[in-house]
Write a protein that binds this DNA or RNA. Structure first.
Lengths: 330, 330
DNA sequence: TTGAAAGCGCTAACAT
DNA sequence: ATGTTAGCGCTTTCAA
């Protein structure tokens, strides 16, 4: 069906190996011969079969990336940054979304491994990564980003300072006089959510009140219900700390214009254009992607040091919503 | 290095072909034998080498997707939808961002083709796709999405009704009494931008004034400059029509709170939470992705009909900004 | 500078 | 139910 090197060789009247030399830019081919070969390639529309090459060479120049959801701006930003580094290294990126399902995460990782990626960057959805053992033993470097691997696996990780960021947000609100600060976040089974809860709780100390905590997948109705319940308390919250970008948006929508002090984890486009501007603890997804990818390539270049655990700082962006004063319950 | 079927076979004391049968779930293996094989697989940490399989079978169960930028919400939404369809068909998606560079687009396409993808979905950056000829002749189906291919190639396309949407936006603003409506859009070399300009111009008819048109890559300073120039005219615009999502956001930021009637092309998150809510002509990127992917799989199943040219409708979302009345120049 | 032969790991076709 | 053999398209090794 498709032309092969053999076809090109006979069209150009040379041996297969000569075609291989031309295709791969190897030296030692007479310019005129090379020209003939190139003409045959163009004429036949030849394109090298990468599978055959990979099979023979044993290396794929391919990196695998598993994220939670490409359509989430945090992960698409991370993705783009990883892609840029991967391209810089002359490799191809395979990526896929786990949709927060451990089974799908594993499927993706295994698919990538079957394609013999040279390395993997994983934002895990599950908490059991023993299935990675054979890969690690085969020498495939793996970097975990955004969330650490499950117990029993000590590999490179690149995480944000989730607890520290949460502490910062709470400290900021406390500084503006708030004493009743609610936390609305994702399911506590998710590492980042539980870390942010931890920071929140640590900083609040004795002010912590579990009635002001809501952790679940973000749906507008659920958030509205939880908020309603909190505001109906005798001592309702005067400020909100939202546990991630999607949560912040959902909460803003559920608030329907009600002015309550709010700091969100994760920056998002237009946060500055809302009224008031939304103060956030900002992560830098592109930075995380870049750091993870560069660490991976360092491993691929042979750096065999002990696993590294990189923690990226986050920073508070003051825009207005986090600086509203506590108001009396109405 | 890594265990192969041969290794598994000798570990399990069977022939290589038996291992192949177990790995591929082929019938005709004694359960006890199969069990022994599976044990050997687990023990050795065997994973099938996909390159070898592909080389032998000639089919990859892989689809390639070239978009402009994963970090753009329009394309990440499209991407996610394509991925979902591809997974449903038991295939793997390879995707990459062209960054609006024709050279990179071609590189990606050629990389994917060298990996022998079964089909391609392309959002083109360039306007010469003759390089696709060999692929098309080899029988690889290609679907263009969001933008059509360059001249001389008649393949399946899935586009939005760009001109119709622009006409609708302008008609809407005219209905609210506006006569001076500016268009701020991307470089006219980009298909969607020029189509939207065309719709805008057609609907405006005699009211068209080229001084109210600005087409260039969106940077905040440039947009601010162009807006300043337009507003300084004797008869300044009373309404703006922005040519895509990124442009709308950039324009809102450049307006810095100034209330001017505005309709944007492309919906975006939080458009409803701004004040006033931003009226837009909304496309559905997920729908476009789904339609393109399904068309591609129809081709893969053997549908050899003439190229289809699908145009997806868009719809106006009324939220406030597009319904502001013309105000007197201040 | 060029070529012939072996073999990467797998599946298809054909035995047994 | 199981095994043997050939060969996918390429690169590697060795020879001319």
């Amino acid at each position: 069906m498709r032309p092969t090197m053999k076809d090109v060789a006979s069209a150009a009247g040379v041996a297969l190996k000569t075609v291989s030399r031309v295709v791969n830019g190897e030296p030692g081919v007479h310019p005129a011969t090379a020209e003939r070969v190139r003409a045959a390639i163009d004429q036949l529309g030849y394109s090298r079969n990468e599978s055959a090459r990979v099979l023979r060479r044993g290396t794929t120049a391919t990196i695998g990336l598993v994220i939670e959801d490409v359509a989430d701006p945090f992960y698409s930003g991370l993705s783009r940054a990883v892609e840029a580094v991967v391209i810089d290294h002359g490799c191809l990126l395979l990526s896929g979304s786990s949709g927060e399902e451990p089974g799908r995460e594993r499927e993706l990782v295994e698919t990538f491994c079957a394609r013999r990626v040279d390395g993997l960057i994983v934002v895990p959805a599950g908490d059991d990564h023993t299935y990675l053992r054979p890969e690690l033993e085969a020498g495939t470097p793996v970097v975990f980003a955004d969330r650490p691997p499950g117990a029993g696996l000590d590999v490179d990780t690149v995480l944000a300072d989730n607890a520290g960021g949460a502490r910062h947000a709470v400290r900021h609100l406390l500084g503006y006089g708030h004493r009743r600060i609610a936390f609305l976040g994702d399911d506590a089974a998710i590492f980042t959510a539980s870390e942010r809860l931890r920071g929140y709780q640590e900083e609040l100390g004795g002010l912590f009140d579990e009635r002001l905590v809501s952790m679940r997948p973000p749906s507008e109705e659920a958030v509205r219900g939880d908020l309603g319940r909190m505001f109906a308390l005798d001592d309702p919250p005067t400020a909100l700390f939202t546990g991630n970008g999607r949560y912040t948006v959902t909460t803003l929508r559920a608030l329907a214009g009600r002015r309550v002090a709010l700091v969100g984890f994760d920056d998002f486009e237009l946060a500055d254009l809302l009224d008031p501007g939304v103060s956030v603890v900002a992560q830098d997804p592109a930075w995380m992607g870049r750091v993870a990818a560069e660490l991976l390539f360092r491993r691929l270049r042979g750096d065999g040091g002990p696993p590294e655990h990189i923690e990226l700082p986050v920073r508070l962006m003051v825009r207005g919503s986090g600086e509203l004063p506590p108001s009396l319950p109405t």
